[in-house]
Amino acid sequence: MTIITRRTALVGASGLLLAGCEKITGSPTVRKVLTLGEKATLSGQRLVTDRNALAPEFSRADISPKFRMNGNRMPASTEYQAHMANAFADWKLEIGGKVARPFSLSLAQLKAAPQRTQITRHDCVEGWSAIGEWTGVPLALLLRQAQVSPSVQYIVFHCADDFSGTPYYESIDMIDALHPQTILAHTMNRQPLPVGHGAPIRLRVERALGYKQAKYVMKIEAVETLAGLHGGGGGYWEDHSGYQWFAGI
């Protein structure tokens, strides 16, 4: 009998405690105060990191034997399925938004452009890491060719995959967009990029966490603001799960 009473008391006490915690974690004021940390992290990391400082690169001996896939592994749209069946022969990457010369590129044209190869570490926001070798076109080259307007603040990546009908997208600022290691990769570990990893191209932005590495990129858009674009958070996970837009840690 005593055990039950004590147990009930314990459950009751922890219930009260949990309710109190929920009141704190759910409070809009608390949430607003907490965003100060994110702002401080963004400013602090930008302050101590040179805009061209390179993410560590590894040797082939360091490559993960198996590279874990995450997010969507097979876009469901009929358009993508058709491209895939056709080995992406008719696929084109669109580059537009606030640019003087919008243009599009086929996979063959992308592969013929100047390339960069890098062996880098992919860090998932969940905590795991995998090392892989990526080859692709530096994003800066494409942006230069498109002549991005000086008022542009962000580059947005629109993707072919979706979560229950909501399309995946991501965004980075101009510092990361023009970084020498920011590439549109079509080759992974010296093989054509597998569908599970984002074929035909995925973004590699090596100083950010995994959710910034947009897969199945279809369209690149230069914008002045992220407001008004989908949920306004600058990315699918930012909009739907409250992930921090700045993914430097």
């Binding site: 949990l18 974690t25 949430r31 907490l34 940390g37 969940e126 409250g242 992930y243």
Partner: peptide
């Protein structure tokens, strides 16, 4: 278990928000 986590349900985004605020 939720009794020892902030928030008291699983939200990686919110956990990170708390963690990096208090890290400062």
């Amino acid at each position: 278990p939720p009794l020892v986590t902030i928030p008291n349900y699983y939200s990686l985004a919110e956990g990170r928000q708390w963690h990096f605020f208090f890290a400062w």
